[in-house]
Design a protein around this nucleic acid. Structure first.
Length: 312
DNA sequence: CGCATTTGACCAGCGC
DNA sequence: GCGCTGGTCAAATGCG
């Protein structure tokens, strides 16, 4: 069972095909082991949640270690986090949490208000929508994406989604589905598509932040795996620690290079992986890793800040 | 009946 | 300007 997570923080353009970015694949592999247990209701988007629900996913983005990630031959889940953001690239040494998250989350929060207002207008008339679009370029929310090897397209992440569109993807036989959070005033969207390189891989791209808790009742425990609840979301640590490397896109070479954070989720599962709802919920269906994985803290310590480890 | 999904049409952005 | 592509809308349809 492989899982690849990709963080795509596209602050502006968003015109690039995400699949194009991920299609080249990432050399690193890790192990994403999950304990068996009840499905967590925690939504993956909580990782992106606003201040009320925990630290932003981007809080978890840590400066890359100086060492290149070891190329693992493990067939186990691979988590690949990719951040694509010119702003971030300008401060590559500190995808540090606070700076990034504060910037991104605040921007999003402010933007959400605007978006909500705009959405009201949009619902009134389409003409008004056109006017807005013509007057200003549409700004995109920060996006977070991950790749999951899965038979199911739509991953259960604890939130309710409504499909509002489907489009054929260029150079891919698989269509891309567009989902929107069904919660009123929550403008989080996500796209789901399959990799044309590996049809077994589902690429899910989230855009925006949920401004509400997961609508699904969450279970109190997860087989000994600590859950992140909404009030202590900061405990979450998306396994976004890893090596940052430039990724040369094979098709859209004109695009600025983005950062790949290659993850080693196997080391994270006990402490953080459980909060990675979508990936976790999905992956745990297929993987039942051995206990030995839990013991490998050497690599974990290499890629996870010590303070994060202490939070377990 | 209410909600979710499907699907064709429409629009904006971008490259040529 | 034109065509392509991504993204969204909204009517039609399906389903529980």
């Amino acid at each position: 069972m492989d899982i690849k997570k990709v963080v795509e923080m596209d602050g502006g353009m968003g015109s690039s095909s995400f699949l194009d970015h991920v299609s080249a694949g990432f050399p690193l592999q890790g192990i994403f082991d999950f304990a068996e247990g009840e499905k967590s209701s925690l939504g993956f988007m909580e990782l992106l949640g606003v201040q009320d629900f925990g630290s932003s996913l981007f809080d978890m983005v840590q400066p890359p270690p100086s060492t290149a990630p070891p190329s693992s031959s493990s067939p186990n889940p691979t988590v690949v986090t990719k951040m694509e953001s010119p702003e971030l690239l300008n401060q590559p040494a500190t995808p540090n949490s606070s700076s990034i998250s504060s910037a991104s989350s605040e921007a999003v929060n402010d933007e959400q208000v605007k978006v909500e207002e705009q959405e009201e207008d949009q619902q009134k008339t389409k003409k008004q929508l056109k006017a807005k679009k013509t007057n200003q370029k549409r700004q995109r929310e920060p996006r977070f994406a991950f790749m999951t090897k899965s038979e199911v397209d739509h991953l259960e992440d604890g939130y309710r989604w409504r499909k509002y569109g489907q489009k054929a993807v260029k150079d891919s036989p698989f269509p891309r589905s567009y989902y929107r959070c069904t919660t009123v005033s929550c403008n989080v969207k996500k796209r789901v598509e399959r990799s044309y390189n590996d049809p077994s891989i589902v690429v899910t791209t989230y855009e925006g932040k949920h401004n509400h808790p997961s609508p699904i009742i969450q279970r109190p425990s997860l087989a000994g795996v600590p859950l992140m609840n909404n009030s202590v979301g900061s405990n979450f640590a998306m396994p976004i620690q890893g090596t940052i490397s430039h990724y040369n896109h094979h098709q859209q070479q004109q695009q600025p290079p983005f950062v790949n954070c290659l993850l080693q989720p196997m080391n994270l599962h006990c402490n953080y992986g459980s909060t990675n709802a979508a990936a976790y919920l999905h992956e745990r269906r297929f993987c039942n890793p051995g206990p030995a994985l839990f013991k490998d803290h050497g690599l974990l310590q290499d890629i996870i800040p010590s303070h994060m480890l202490k939070e377990e």
